[in-house]
Write a protein that binds this DNA or RNA. Sequence first.
RNA 1: GCCCAGAUGGCGGAAUUGGUAGACGCGCCAGACUCAAAAUCUGGUAUUGGCAACAAUGUGCAGGUUCGAUUCCUGUUCUGGGCACCA
Length: 999
Amino acid sequence: MEYNFRKIEEEWQRKWKENNVYRVSNGSSKPKYYVLDMFPYPSGAGLHVGHPLGYIASDIFARYKRLKGFNVLHPMGYDAFGLPAEQYAIEHGIHPAVSTDQNINNFHAQLDKIGFCFDWSREVRTSDPGYYKWTQWIFLQLFNSFYNRSAQKAESITRLVKIFEKEGNQAHPVPDAKFELRNPNFEVLNGNFTAAQWKTFDEKTKQDILMEYRLAYCGYGEVNWCEALGTVLANDEVINGASERGGHPVVRKKLRQWYLRITEYADRLLEGLVHIEFSDAMKEMQTNWIGKSYGAEIDFEIAASRAEGAGEKAKLKVYTTRPDTIFGVDFMVVAPEHDLITQITPSAQKKAVEDYIAYVKSRSDRERQAEKKISGCFTGAYAINPFDKREIPIWTSEYVLAGYGTGAIMAVPCGDERDFKFAKHFNIPITNIIGKHYNGEEANPTKDAILENSDFLNGILMRDAIDVAIKKLEELEIGKRKVNYKMRDAAFSRQRYWGEPFPIKWMNGIAYPLPEKDLPLQLPYVEAYKPGPEGEGPLANIPSWTEKKLETNTMPGYAGSSWYFLRYMDPHNEAAFCSREASDYWGQVDLYIGGTEHAVGHLLYSRMWTKALFDLGLIGFDEPYKKLVNQGMIQGVSEKIFLSAVSFQHLKTCKKQNSFKVPIAVDGGYEVDVRDPKEDEPVAAATDILHQSRFKLADFFIDNFGANTVEYRVDISDVENHELDIESFIKSHRGAQFKNAVFLCEGGFWFQGRFHRKNNGSDKFFTEPEVEKMSKSKYNVVNPDDIISKYGADTFRMYEMFLGPVEQSKPWDTKGIEGVHRFLKKLWRLFFDEQKGKVWNEEKATGAELKALHKAIKKIEEDTERFSFNTAVSTFMIAVNELSDLKCHKKEILEPLLILLAPYAPHITEELWHQLGNAGMVIDAAYPKAEEKYLAESSKNYPVAINGRTRAELTIALDATQQQVEEMILANETVKKWLEGKQPKKVIYVKNKMINVVL
RNA sequence: GCCCAGAUGGCGGAAUUGGUAGACGCGCCAGACUCAAAAUCUGGUAUUGGCAACAAUGUGCAGGUUCGAUUCCUGUUCUGGGCACCA
């Protein structure tokens, strides 16, 4: 009886489905465990072997937990809204709903083949109106809430209105300090209003004020605007200030946007990190993203003597974490977007400043920070240092971002590297306030210097001076202590079609929520996806939509994914997003597996939503994910060849084609039948010869190959062992253009199917491998379907795990899969022999067999618990090797081994489990227990090191004393040889570890 | 530029708390079975020198701490992920 994985896997997948083996109920006498994978976006390219890595890991853990007696929730669904589907619709005219459906079906079929224990009855799709009804509903909860800072929680906005009616906003100032509160006559209210004033405000004013408090609110923000495409672009669609598609110019433009007031949750998001099991790296990334810092806001007056007109009374507010360096300020830098610039710039500098601002508008935030080139422009205005009254030039530069702090900084070149470089570049004199700590070569950001040249701060340690300076600022009322966050409110709208519509109606410039009974507000069907006028989304083109004054933006991708883990608990509930009963039962996700790319996006948003839902009493916990495991990426191996404008010795070149030149003539010395190729046809290709120094190009009748080579990725299906199958390559769609190309190898070259030998080197055409992202565009995608049809799902699952630690990125190499497949065949042979059939028996196990088993049980359990699945697979291999060596076919040993292996290879174990005569499913068996009595050892083979280097081995009883060990050591031949008759300085004996003799 | 992570044989990786570097698998080499091949099995395989015993070197690079460092510390290079409209 052979291991027929195809039959076994199909059969059990069918039976599992028929018997609802993986359906879970909300309630059980067993303890609960919730295992979740990060929400996949069903892309048109389908699954490649990298995608299921995390799903396999979570599947193993879910099955393991079930064996351990837990009621395990392990659901799967789709994050189905998103830009790619819309882009596909624009290009191919297929409605996103249609293509998304196709993609999901494709994904689903691929996932099914891997044998996951998902409870598919709980599947959700964010684009399903039954799902996004509740995304809209939660949005309305956020819209109708504000963050009560004194209670440190979200509360109903109607409560806030009552407070305003009773006492104004004294106790609840506007969250955004930059917001200018105005009454209906547009008079600035200085931040506060009384109950009496509130009552006099008209509806519009009231609503505008409330909008400043709502957790989901509407405001204005800058986007990448591409006039030519008439649309807003994502950062990764913008390359060097131009659109990726078409290369049209892109500028920053202010558009009306929805936001989530996540900044109000900054402290709780930080504090919450203490209570959840995320990796330190992940916590650090989130902490840095939130970017809490302590410092001061300082007002600098604008020098009247140097300013013209309006600027006179203006003040420049800066935020700094280092107020101790105030006497080292040599210049100020304001963000190019800063409102003050136009006010303070004297006419003489206007042109230069405007030109500079225009330049900056074409640059993304990323470029502005990443650029090594220093740029900036002097505004012509001066600020006055509030302490020593020194006049300080005010510059504008792209490295200061409008969104952070006050959008202006005081620059201290002796203490800050960026400021230093800027000062050097523009020849701004540098004041040294830290004496010998500053060497004039580079800035020194120390806090451990004693201040000099610093007036009242002289002689104080900088660390201590921070507080002294702030106290003085507050005393003189020129500044105040300030906590600042780098994190900004989350932009929550997209000018796109394929997303959740906002349940919002606009009337007289006021946003009104739709009543709950009108949800879901369904996404209307459209034929075209063109952006609307003035940068509005495609929904603005639909008269029936705009007639109803409905919001034309849609929600971003993370709307649906911020709460999906809750919907899985109660996926078919039509009365609530998730019943309190269900969320109380399942609680937090116990294990969440996904990539680090979500570190600061999805994970922070999801945490914020959870906290808001908790505050509003809708769920009973305020962190969504108890433990997070980050899976690494499986990379692809691309295979590259090199193309060049080659120059044969007697060669003419003709028309330039795609920057390659085309060879048309022949080398005189060789009979090469290079007929004149058509102008649009060939290109020359070459190979590893570029990398072989022993190969002399001069031998080859080529002048300057390599001068202009271009890398070209060939499809990995045309490559084996880094050798290109030229024939198959030329037959492929992309390779057709190379049919008249010359393929240089070490021993000669291929041309039109014939090899022309030049020397006795190889005629193999080698490619250059490169490890990079697995992606369609790199022609290096390996499809799991192919692997499974060749080796089966169990082999595939185990090999994915065997490749290396889940957390680590590693390249896929199909070749290695044979080893895992052999292992499963070897396991099978413990039960069945090809000729003899059944070989397993019910004999009593020996001590050696029990030891092999219990060693495995112990290690597998430990490894599974710490997500070290690769070493667990090794342990299975070792166990099966040992049992094979022992010729052990005993049920007593093999049956527990099957249970151990069931999470990893569910199909083969299910089959063998039933072959052993069991009736139920293996997943409902009890996990075996490792018994120490089979593992006990009385002695250990110790390594004996001389000066730390292992020289010998010695078997010593585990209970040996230091003295006994020393005696044994000194009697050892190898040790004697090294001692050369002398006494050792020291003998280090670490029980159960090693022995080290120090000479 | 900023934040985070990683680097170990020909390849993927192991070494869980500072204690035998290279488990397990791939590949490769040799052998058995076979008319032959596949499959399977056995042995070998970090590098250098040596018939061998053995010796020297060796965990990206340069230092440091320690009886002992892949593991801890300082600096540095390269690669990957993220940087707010890809998901």
